[in-house]
Design a protein around this nucleic acid. Structure first.
Lengths: 147, 147
DNA sequence: AACAATTATATTGCGCACAATTTGATGTCA
DNA sequence: TGACATCAAATTGTGCGCAATATAATTGTT
């Protein structure tokens, strides 16, 4: 066996690692903005959904994020404990848990509005280029999930 | 407060989420290839480094992956327990732990050589486009880390 | 040589992420 | 109606990922 790997097995040539690594870099870049709001990065993703449409069921949060109840149930409980939202069974269908933002949770949206500009800046890219890249990455993710 | 978020706060417009989501999709896409080899996805990344250069210190694994000893120490212990590698203190500098592949760990490289082609296929993209995308994502990650 | 600063790894604690299973409510159909 | 499948969440167990801290070896300084 040679001491060096063929190119297709070198770490720096893996697109999966570029994406893996960029995902962690994003979480770190968001941290200083989210920490003052008492949010983690995955919690912020949930807030994006609830700010846009409140009163979602757990599944209506899980599906767009590609997460399951095993991840979301404890995460939502922590957010409830932090006073950001409430969780309660749907009156018409007791299987469903509906999630509603508290006034405090709703109020965070105004503070969050400054974040996208800061991240754009940190990305070192133009908005157009970033949007184009986003669509490419989105298509890649969808393609990987289809198989 | 309106019931809908401004575009810059919608989940589907976030590049961070596109990347986050694609990273998870990659891990899922790799799983059926790695599971038969007894590897998780992060463990596979470590193997890529060791296949290319054996006998690395923990730091020489941590730095390229942007991970720390808090993540790697238990991960490497699990891989040691699985018989993939050995961990031992450097004779010249007892602070350093050197990681060496076992024959079993080395032998997995041949099986892994088929994976990149399968992932390329699942990506639904041409190799050229994927390589270009990789460099863009890499640059984005680096830019985010610099700030 | 003695002592402080630095370096490398390990440990602890918390929060995801996901597979597998469980619990309880709803829907279906003989 | 009663048996059974289906569905929504919750639970359990394992493995990252990272901040904060601890431990031990080495280096630098006086």
């Amino acid at each position: 066996m040679p001491d060096t790997s063929p190119p297709e097995l070198k770490l720096e040539n893996q697109i999966c690692f570029a994406v893996y690594s960029a995902a962690h870099a994003f979480a770190q870049a968001y941290k200083p903005h989210l920490e003052p709001m008492g949010l983690t990065y995955p919690q912020y993703l949930v807030m994006l959904l609830l700010w846009d449409q409140d009163g979602r069921s757990v599944n209506e949060i899980a599906h767009p994020l590609h997460l399951d109840s095993g991840t979301l149930t404890p995460l939502l409980k922590r957010m409830e404990k932090a006073g950001l939202l409430t969780r309660g069974r749907d009156a018409k269908d007791e299987r469903i848990v509906r999630v509603h933002l508290t006034p405090q949770g709703k109020s965070l949206r105004e503070k969050a509005r400054a974040i996208p500009q800061a991240i754009l800046c940190a990305s070192g890219m133009e908005l157009d280029g970033l949007m184009a890249l986003r669509e490419e990455v989105k298509a890649l993710g969808q393609s990987l999930r289809e198989k």
